Simulated scan of single mutants.
Amino acid sequence: MTLALNVRLDKSGYLIMNRTNLTPLFHLGRIVATPGALDVLQRAGVFPFQLLVGHQCGDGGVLCAEDRAANAGAIVAGGRILSVYEVGAEKIYVITEADRASTTVLLASEY
């Protein structure tokens, strides 16, 4: 399945994703989100699925090189996978557990 995803929120450092061929790399399991994360996303006009699709397809957001390498290993070996997205002044974490039973969307301050 190929999905086109083009998200742009500009002028304030908002999320920008421009990927056209997205292939899921792992299962998300049960998806949960905190009220704080949902509030920030709603105010910014970002749907949670936009972050989840990017996360599941290997777009880690604003991760450093070390965290990107850890994610690559985790996808192969079954470890925890982290993505970090900047939405306005907030950072949103998307974390899939090592057993792939669940994925959580939360504010960095809620971690």
Rank of each mutant, 00 (worst) to 15 (best):
T2D: 06
T2N: 02
L5S: 06
L9M: 09
D10M: 05
S12G: 12
L15M: 12
L15Y: 09
N21G: 08
L22G: 02
T23F: 03
P24H: 08
L25V: 10
L25S: 07
H27F: 02
L28D: 10
G29I: 12
I31G: 00
L38A: 05
L38D: 12
R43C: 01
R43S: 07
R43I: 04
G45L: 10
P48Q: 15
Q50P: 00
Q50Y: 06
L51K: 04
L52H: 03
V53P: 00
V53D: 03
V53G: 00
Q56P: 01
Q56A: 08
C57T: 15
G58K: 05
G58A: 12
G58C: 08
D59K: 00
G60E: 14
G60F: 02
G61Q: 07
V62K: 04
L63P: 03
A65P: 03
D67K: 03
A69C: 02
A70W: 00
G73K: 08
G73R: 13
A74C: 06
R80H: 01
Y85T: 15
G88Q: 11
K91P: 00
I92L: 06
T96H: 00
R100K: 03
A101L: 09
T103V: 06
T104V: 12
V105E: 10
E110L: 08
Y111K: 09
Y111P: 01
